[in-house]
Structure formats: C-alpha cells, structure tokens
Amino acid sequence: MLSIKNLHASVEGKEILKGINLEIKAGEVHAIMGPNGSGKSTLSQVLAGNEAFEVTEGEVTLNGENLLDLETEERAREGIFLAFQYPVEIPGVSNLQFLRTAVNAMRTHRGEEEMNAAEFMKLAKEVSKQVDLDPSFLKRGVNEGFSGGEKKRNEIMQALLLQPKLAILDETDSGLDIDALKVVSDGVNALRSEDRAILMVTHYQRLLNHIVPDYVHVLAGGRIIKSGGRELALELEEKGYGWLGIKDEETADSAAN
C-alpha cells in the first residue's frame, strides 16, 4: 500500500529525515517509536503533504501512485489520514460544519451524493458516541477549547467518518487517561481491516497492548535504526533507547507530554 524509499526532508534548511525506508501493506499495523525530536511527526506531516517541509530526496508511493506529486487535499481523497499530534483549534468554524465539509468532499470525490445537514447530523451523533464525545462538541468551534484528550477523540472521530486507507496516528495516545485510551484504541481497532493500514507514532507500550502492531520501528536521528515485531516495543519499554546507542537524555521516558 505505502512504500517509502530513501526519504529525505528538511525544514528551514535543516535536514530532519535522512533516508527513511518503510513498506506498509494493506491490513498491517505499524508502530513507530523513538526519542523526542527524532523526526516522527516530520515523517507524518510529510506524508500528509505539509509544505512547510521540503522533500529533498527519495520517493513515496501509495498503491503505486507517486504520493509526493499530489496536493494535500488529493492525498486525503486518495485515503491518507493524519491524526495530528497537536490538533489545530479553529474558532469560528463549527466542528459540525468542518466534518460535514470534509465528508462531502470525500463523497464528491468518490462520485457519491453529498449528505444533507440532517443526514450528516445523524451520522455525526453516532460516531461522536463511538468516541465518547458529547454531541455538544459538534456545535463548538473545531477543537476550540477542547481538552487534550477531547482533541484526540475528535481526531479519531474524523478518521471514523472519513474511513481512510492509511491512517497515520501521531501520538494519538498521548495525554489520554485510561478510559480515554480505551475509547481511542477501540476506535482505532474499529478502523482495522484487510484493506486498510495503520501507522501509529507512540512513546508508550501501553497503547500497543490495546492495538497490537504487526511491526515496530525505532526512528532516531531521522532514520529507522531498528525494526521488529511487537516484542521490540516491550524491549524498549524495559531498556529505554540506550541499548540502541542513543543518548540517554533523549529517551522516551524523559518525553514531556
């Protein structure tokens, strides 16, 4: 489904990604772990098409199509979804209006009819229940004044509404209490299917108890320095990143989240 080859990217002249290689097949769940500042969010943002980051080398294909040639909105319509590490607050645009516009953009792209306000309201209420967000959140501005956990649930709600082919979850588990973690992981597990792939960035093994990954990768200094099965996550939890030759103060445990 997704193939990343020798991907280099920089921001403001500084190289952050220094040759990423990654293959993700439909149906798979991949976890990316790694110290703060190692480039996990940069990779996520580059895949979603954030123009603040410049791709200087390498290629990325989605089902054989050159992803890097596509505009952000086209990538989304082709099925890329990024749950932001820091979801953006947009006062003045209601969450409901935002979600409906997004869903209808996707439907139009697929040649389906747009949903009217009433139909969408019904759907949105169901999905908001699924992520345990009170429907009153639909009326508020996009993420406006939402708590950290509410923002993350709103991201998962969007994923559930948009039904992407590749969901990239950038620390969607950070800042969640136990109950919210359960809600969010149930949401992600509901997304799991044979024709969908999930790439999740996390610092914590605890998420991986709920969403069991097929592969775990360690990203450090802009490169994937180790890959393995789910047991790699357990090993990291136990030993930190030190044994991989990464400076101690950069370990995930010191991450201020």
Binding site: G49, N50, E73, R75, G92, V93, T101, A105
Partner: peptide, 29 residues
C-alpha cells in the same frame, strides 16, 4: 493561518473551500 489551512485540506477539503471557511470564521460571529 497556514496551519489551520493545512489541517482543513488534510481532510480532503478543497483549498478554495478551506480559504472560505477560514475567512468566514473571521467574520461569522
């Protein structure tokens, strides 16, 4: 705001529509 714009288009919303949403957000109230 570029980041807000990116957030909207990353959901498949057309750039024009995203611009309109954000501009309206400025005066909607």
């Amino acid at each position: 705001d570029e980041i807000s714009l990116f957030y909207l288009v990353s959901r498949g919303i057309a750039r024009r529509e995203a611009n309109v949403l954000l501009t309206m957000a400025f005066i909607n109230e």
